[in-house]
Design a binder for these strands. Structure first.
Lengths: 319, 319
DNA sequence: TTGTAAGCGTTATCAA
DNA sequence: TTGATAACGCTTACAA
C-alpha cells in the first residue's frame, strides 16, 4: 500500500507538499503539484483515512441509535437524517438497539473512543444521567420532549397533540376512547398517558385501564387489539392508534370482523403515511423526515436548541 | 484527554506494559497490572480507537449499501445483518443510495480508504467491473444471482421463483397475467422478465408489453397500477406484485374500486410480510433476515461462496 | 513556495 | 517479565 512518503519520494518533494496537494492547500508550484498528481495516478494511491482521523481527531461519522429500522416512524427519521448527512459529507453508523440499553451504551462507547463524532438518539433506553456523562466526548441530540441545558432536542409535543386528538373525538361525540402505544415506558407514551388522564378529568369521564393497550409495534398487533376489544364489556367507540401501519391493520381487522368504521369504531392514526391516505384513515401528520434533518443539524451545530415540530390533523373517513 | 503515555507515567511503567494490560496480554506482574488499572480508574481513561485502527489496519466497521431503509425488503435484510453484526462486534455504516451510483462509489471509496473492512451491497447500481476493481481493498458481497469467482453472493433465484408463480397461476386458469416490479433495470427484474417471456413462449401466450408495470416501489404506487389496469382493453386476470406492501395496496384499491379478488383479479405478493397474512394475500415467502445473516458471514469469512436461498409459495385467498 | 520534524495514540518487535 | 523504540500514515507548526 503506497503512502504519502512514497509519493514524496517519487515526486521528488516533501511529504508536506504531497499533503498540500492532497488537501488542496495553497503554496504549491504548478510543477510540483503536477509531479505529485502523476505519482498519485501512477500508484493508484489513496489516503488511509484512519491516519487522517487520528491526526485530526474527528471522523465525520455520525451515530444513529434507533430500536429498529423497519418501523415506518424510524425509517422516515433515518431517511431525513441520511439525506442531510450526505450533504454534509457525514456517514451514518447505525445502532439498532431493539430497545436494549446495552446497545445504546455501545454507541456511547464509540463516542467516547472517538470513532463517531456525535450521536443522534432517536429513542432512548438509558438514563439521562448516562447521556450527560458522555456529553463531554461529543454532541448528543435527542428526539424527545426534554429540556436540558446541554442537550439539543427535536420533538413532537405528544401531550398537546394527544390532547387535541382526544378533544376532536369528544367533539365528534365519543366519550369512550381507547388508545394503543408502542411501549408504555417510552417517554412519549408517558406524555400521552398524562394527556389521556387529564382529558378524562376535564370531561369527568371514567378511567378504564383496559382502554390503554401497549406493545403495539407491528401491523400484526392489530389483530391483538381487536381481539382485546371484543372481550371488553364496554368497548371503546374510538381508538387512537400508535401509527398508520397499525391503524391500517386495525381497519382491515374490523373489516374482517364486520365492525363498521367509523360507526362502531372510530380510528385516528399517527404519521400520515401513504397507507393512511389510501385507506382513507384520519391521521395526524408528523414531519418525520424534517425532524431527522433537524436532529442532524443540531448534532453538527454548536449551540444547544430545542425544536418543537408542528403537526396537524388530517380529517378523513375513519372518524 | 489522557493517553497511554500518561498512564505509563502515572503507573510508573512503560507504555508497552499499559498496552498489555489494556489488551489482556500475558506477561505482566500483578503488581504492575494493578498500578495500571488504578491509573485507568483515576483518569477515566479510554482508548482512542482511531489510533488502534491506524495501528492494526482494520476498523470492525461493515458498510451496508441499500437504496432505502423504509422498504420492507431492505429493512428485513438490514435487520438480519444487524443482528449477526452485533454478535461479531461489528458496527454497520449505512449507505442509503436511492439507487444513485455515486453513493455506492462513496461506499467503495471508504473501503479503499480503509474506514470500513468490508461491504455488503444489497442492491447494486454500479458495474461489476467497478466492484471487482475494489475487491483488492476488502471483501465485498452481493445480494444477487451472479457467480463470479471473487465475489460471494446470497440470492433468490428470481427466475425460477417467478416461473413457478406463473405456472401456479396458469394452473389456476389464468392466461392473462401481468406483473409489477420496482425498477426494470435491476438484475432481479431482468431475471423475472426472462422468466415471464419464457413462460409465455412455453404456453404460447400473447406478449402484451403493458402487462409489465415498473417503478412500483411504494404502497401508493398501487393506485397507479389499478388506474393503468382500468385503461387496458384486455386487462390481466392475475397480477404478480413486487412485494406484499404494494399487494396490500392493490387489494385495498380493488376494494375501493369494486374489483373482486380473486374473481376479477388474482394477486400474488412477495416476501410473506405480516400484512399479507392479515389481508389473506397469497404470497411467496422469502427469508430476508436469514439472507442478511448469510451476507454478513460471507463478508467476514475467508472463502467465496454462492448461497441460493429457498423460498416457498404461501397459498391464501387472493388467487 | 518548500521542507523538516514533531505530533496524533496505539500496537508490535526485539533486546534485555 | 519488562521496556525502548520503531512502525502505522497523516497533519501542521515552524523555519527557511
Amino acid at each position: 500500500m503506497t503512502n504519502i512518503k512514497d509519493l514524496a519520494k517519487m515526486a521528488g518533494v516533501s511529504v508536506t507538499t504531497v499533503s498540500r496537494v492532497l488537501n488542496e492547500h495553497p503554496y504549491v508550484s504548478e510543477k510540483k503539484r503536477m509531479a505529485v498528481l502523476e505519482a498519485i495516478k501512477a500508484t493508484n494511491y489513496h489516503k488511509n483515512i484512519n491516519a487522517v482521523h487520528l491526526s485530526k481527531g474527528n471522523t465525520l461519522l455520525m451515530g444513529v441509535v434507533l430500536p429498529f429500522t423497519g418501523h415506518p416512524y424510524f425509517a422516515s427519521l433515518l431517511k431525513g437524517i441520511a439525506r442531510i448527512a450526505l450533504e454534509h459529507d457525514y456517514k451514518l453508523v447505525l445502532f439498532q438497539t431493539d430497545y436494549l440499553e446495552s446497545r445504546e451504551l455501545d454507541a456511547l462507547l464509540m463516542l467516547k473512543e472517538k470513532q463517531i463524532d456525535s450521536l443522534i438518539i432517536c429513542s432512548r433506553a438509558c438514563s439521562l444521567a448516562t447521556i450527560e456523562e458522555h456529553l463531554h466526548y461529543g454532541s448528543i441530540v435527542l428526539c424527545e420532549n426534554i429540556k436540558r441545558e446541554q442537550i439539543s432536542t427535536t420533538f413532537v409535543n405528544h401531550y398537546s397533540v394527544f390532547f387535541e386528538a382526544l378533544e376532536y373525538l369528544y367533539q365528534k361525540g365519543h366519550q369512550k376512547i381507547g388508545y394503543c402505544i408502542g411501549r408504555r415506558s417510552g417517554s412519549s407514551s408517558k406524555k400521552r398517558e398524562q394527556a389521556y388522564k387529564d382529558f378524562l378529568v376535564k370531561y369527568d369521564l371514567h378511567f378504564r385501564p383496559e382502554y390503554i393497550m401497549d406493545n403495539c409495534l407491528y401491523v400484526e398487533d392489530a389483530e391483538k387489539i381487536i381481539k382485546e376489544l371484543k372481550t371488553m364489556e364496554v368497548p371503546p367507540t374510538a381508538l387512537l392508534v400508535t401509527n398508520d401501519q397499525i391503524a391500517a391493520g386495525v381497519v382491515t381487522c374490523c373489516h374482517n370482523e364486520g365492525i363498521a368504521i367509523p360507526d362502531e369504531l372510530a380510528i385516528i392514526g399517527f404519521d400520515n403515511q401513504p397507507i393512511a391516505k389510501m385507506m382513507n384513515i384520519t391521521t395526524i401528520d408528523i414531519p418525520h423526515e424534517q425532524m431527522g434533518e433537524n436532529l442532524f443539524l443540531q448534532a453538527v451545530g454548536e449551540e444547544i436548541s430545542h425544536t418543537e415540530v408542528k403537526v396537524k390533523l388530517i380529517e378523513r373517513g375513519t372518524v
